[in-house]
Amino acid sequence: MRIARLKNADIHWREDGDPDGAPIVFANSLGTDLRLWDSVIERLPKDGHRYIRFDKRGHGLSSCPPAPYSITELVDDLEGLLKQIGVTRFAFIGLSIGGMIGQLLAHRHPDRVTCMVLACTAVKMGTPEMWQDRIKSIQTGGLESLADAVMDRWFSGPFRHSDECLAWRHMLTRTPAEGYIGCSAALAAADLSATTTSLSLPALGIAGSQDLASPPEQVRATTDLIAGSRFIEIPDAGHLPCVEQPDLFTAHVQKFLEESAHV
């Protein structure tokens, strides 16, 4: 296990694949850790690519600074990690809040992000009132009080009845409440409309057809803001299509990376 000791957080990270290969950075969603990408990385080619993933602050094995957080702080953490491990140019794959981190990172460093996959994300997710209500619920009843409703947004009906869904539910409920609240506050305040509109790079938007957290039309609208983008929808999947439909998700990602000449 590896920890990057940064100024404001200790970030747990991992790399797979070819240590001398072209870097691809993954950022996961609210309430998950870097294991979100296990099934994708298992299916990607091992030669020629260096796969880097991390637990954002307040999640997984990273430290949990006091809430609230901002989207700027989450991007600062990733910038600090990449600087520490010597990654300068890279492709980016982010899901949900991870996709928002990628959008702002690409705005800050258009010369460093070669291409990006934006999965189940948007320039703005939910409303401040919705996030404040969620924060209050966690403060009163913990993450357990939200777990079933979150599973409804994360997964399609058949998957919710599987044994694997129980593992993802446990991952959610074992997320530090402070970390979940901190990132919820970041989502409540984040609106990337202006900065994402300025982007011009190869970008692939991926939506799950049954995603209740970031519906396909929201993902498409965000992707359409980026010059050079395209959009696809994965059937029979909710908010985490990389979990429910890893073969389809990975095939789309691999094809996009190849066509974007990220080698």
Rank of each mutant, 00 (worst) to 15 (best):
M125Q: 07
E233K: 10
V123Q: 03
Y69W: 02
K136N: 11
P128W: 11
T173C: 09
H49N: 14
S70D: 00
K7C: 01
H252V: 01
L204P: 02
I24D: 13
Q218A: 02
Q103S: 08
I52P: 00
V75A: 06
V150L: 12
T72A: 03
A91M: 04
G228Y: 14
E42K: 15
Q103E: 13
V243M: 00
L118E: 07
R50Q: 07
L44Y: 00
R35W: 06
G86Y: 06
R5T: 10
P202G: 10
M100I: 08
T72N: 06
G102N: 13
A189C: 07
W131I: 06
F249I: 14
R50A: 11
T121W: 09
A22D: 08
P216F: 00
R50N: 06
L143Q: 01
G182W: 03
P235V: 05
H239Q: 11
E259T: 15
T195Y: 04
C183Q: 07
A91C: 13
I93S: 12
G58C: 03
C120A: 08
W131N: 04
D133H: 13
I41D: 02
L257R: 02
D152S: 09
T223D: 03
I181Y: 09
H161W: 03
H109Q: 13
G238T: 08
E258G: 01
L201S: 12
R134S: 10
A190I: 12
T222C: 10
T250K: 05
L30W: 12
R153E: 05
G126W: 07
S209M: 12
G98Q: 05
S200G: 11
D20F: 10
A207T: 02
R230T: 13
L118Y: 00
Q245K: 15
L74I: 05
A9Y: 04
A177C: 13
R35L: 13
G94M: 05
A9S: 11
G17P: 06
I206S: 09
A227N: 14
V123F: 03
A188C: 06
H170C: 02
A22G: 01
H170D: 07
E164M: 05
L36F: 11
H59W: 14
S209V: 04
S62V: 07
D236S: 11
E73N: 02
I234S: 09
H252M: 03
C242G: 10
I85H: 10
M151S: 09
L204R: 06
V87S: 04
A194Q: 12
P23V: 08
W13A: 13
F54P: 02
A194H: 08
